[in-house]
């Protein structure tokens, strides 16, 4: 193999490696990375220095008659969420507050994001949003959305 061939091969391997790595990262993290808009006029050292991107991982599971959605959003209270269903997609708006009692001191590492965020999760079927249930526990928001009658799994008994 000539040196030129080796260089060509090496370049191609490098490009493939980059593409694979990026693809993997992209497919895993793309949807979970969420933009945070900091609250205006916030008098807190973190208001300007905190990360503007948070990782809010979601999960959607389909059962026979409902959809179960989980969203990781640590450090919030249940009243900080505003949840709605529009056009067969779930909209979650949240507001993560800066704690005023944590103003003092020098920040060494600030990786956690604060402010307002919005996540839109497409739903695989029509849901009955009136009968939806939600809870917030250990930093995870859990929603149960019953499917509309027409979308429910119907079992037909053969006589």
């Amino acid at each position: 193999m000539s040196t030129f061939d080796r260089i060509t091969n090496n370049l191609r391997d490098t490009a493939d490696y980059l593409a694979d790595g990026w693809q993997e990262l992209w497919s895993k993290a793309r949807n979970a990375i969420t933009r945070f808009t900091p609250a205006q006029h916030e008098d807190h050292p973190l208001a300007t220095t905190a990360s503007r991107w948070g990782v809010l991982s979601a999960e959607l599971r389909e059962t026979g008659d409902s959809l179960e959605i989980m969203l990781e959003a640590p450090g919030m209270e249940s009243q900080d969420f505003q949840i709605s269903v529009q056009n067969q997609s779930l909209h979650i708006i949240g507001r993560k507050h800066l704690h005023q009692d944590r103003k003092e001191g020098h920040y060494y590492i600030t990786e956690r994001a604060y402010g307002q965020f919005e996540r839109i999760i497409p739903l695989p079927c029509q849901v009955d949003s009136e009968a939806a249930g939600a809870s917030y526990k250990r930093g995870v928001l859990e929603l149960t959305l019953p499917k509309q009658k027409s979308a429910q799994l119907r079992r037909i008994t053969v006589e």
Binding site: Y107, Y108, I109, R112
Partner: peptide
């Protein structure tokens, strides 16, 4: 993800 703060008396670490 973490936040680490130092005050004159202590270190505080917040971990998501």
């Amino acid at each position: 993800q973490v936040d680490i703060t130092e005050t004159p008396e202590n270190f505080r670490v917040l971990v998501d």
